[in-house]
Write a protein that binds this DNA or RNA. Structure first.
Ligand SMILES: [Mn+2]
Ligand SMILES: [Mn+2]
Ligand SMILES: [Mn+2]
Ligand SMILES: [Mn+2]
Lengths: 218, 218
DNA sequence: TTAAAAATTTAGACAAGTCTAAAAATATAT
DNA sequence: ATATATTTTTAGACTTGTCTAAATTTTTAA
């Protein structure tokens, strides 16, 4: 039985592996978890002993098959609970992430599967992220980051990478939601900011914002 | 912000105060929590410093107003989650207690109230226990323990005090559920066992079982 | 009222997870 | 290739909650 802390480390390594292709460094994990490299180092030793990660000192880590399975289960729980909160309890999409951070550590396989059925086996969470099924199968959504698009290209907002309250409220303020059509109008090479056309007019978004917007193009 | 452990101590003291009228002893708490008196002693000092309990060394404890409020909030969460699990996710009444023990520590006032509304503000949980409202008001159900009844008296099973899987499965096996009519047929003075008539015949229950059955008589 | 028994608290240790500071290993740059 | 900078690990300390064993207080009972 893993502690919530151990589960969070596995989940973080899982997320970082999707971000970059190489082994995950101690510092990278520390920055994501807002903790210190020394704490991470201690934990990596522990997770390595439990065969949940492949770990050689100073070489970075990756999840073992066993660790990957557990990470997927936690991701599944997190996203299913987010669905529940938004669809059944009428939370807004910007209010659910922190609560799901807690709910994802509730231990009961039966609970997850019953929740999944209750919700009608959703495939995506309120932020457009795919939900692994009970066997750990996950569809990677083929979306493109808006930074990779050219002037004149357009698509529908399909997924936001940052689920924090502060980012989602920014999108709310700009009247941007999943499914909205977005067209790239202008690209500023100096700071990579982008002028986009949305349903409620044209706005400029910073590179930092753009990094978190994924569109489905045709 | 309290830890799950601190919350469990408060909840336990709350429950014990309903059981007995005097201040709650260290050993009594230890036995309920399956821990040692020395651990309890440490925790009581801490909860006392936080003004959550009234504590004088060697004198036993009771909840302060502040502690009582928190205990009621946890009880409310526990019982609402049990309702959710049974009514929405189709768990059986004997499967939910342990899961609710985890869910009750999820922190979000908004979540509790939205869950309450979603469920239609239920007044009782699947074991017949009353659910405090958002202000901490709780209706004490006026039920009578079957040990206090005479031969020939009858009533409807309204509440079970033990919510453990093992006890509720025993009741399932005897085909006994909340709402069922029960009549006292015979009382054995030697061991306080009771012969009762239920919808599916007449059975003998031990004193230990009887202690956990509360009926509503007319 | 005093001695024995029981209950409670304290002392000291341990595990988990975190931190700072220092040491060791790796990467970078001249 | 070597010195410097960066990253990672280790050492030692701290916190929370637990335990056993010992000391203290309260209760019970002679
Ligand atoms: Mn989330
Ligand atoms: Mn999400
Ligand atoms: Mn319960
Ligand atoms: Mn209950």
């Amino acid at each position: 039985m893993l502690s919530p802390t151990e589960e969070n480390y596995l989940k973080t390594i899982y997320a970082l592996q999707l971000e970059v292709d190489k082994d995950i460094s101690t510092n990278f994990i520390a920055s994501k978890l807002h903790t210190k490299a020394s704490s991470v180092s201690d934990m990596l030793k522990k997770l390595g002993n439990k065969k949940l990660i492949i770990y050689k000192k100073y070489q970075g880590v990756k999840l073992s098959d066993k660790g990957n399975k557990i990470a997927l289960k936690i991701v599944r729980k997190h996203r299913l609970w987010e669905c529940f909160l938004v669809k059944e309890l009428n939370f807004k999409w910007d209010e659910v992430h922190e609560i799901a951070e807690q709910l994802e550590h509730v231990k009961s396989d039966d609970l997850v599967d019953k929740l999944d059925n209750f919700l009608g086996r959703p495939k995506f969470d309120p932020h457009g992220d795919p939900i692994p099924d009970k066997y750990g199968n996950i569809v990677e959504n083929n979306t493109v980051n808006i930074l990779g698009m050219q002037i004149g290209e357009e698509g529908k907002l399909d997924c936001v990478k940052d689920s924090s309250e502060v980012f989602l409220r920014y999108l709310n303020n700009k009247n941007l939601a999943l499914g909205d059509n977005i067209k790239v109008v202008e690209i500023e090479p100096f700071d990579n900011s982008i002028r986009i056309k949305t349903k409620s007019g044209s706005i400029t978004i910073s590179k930092h914002v753009a990094e978190n917007l994924y569109l489905k193009t045709n």
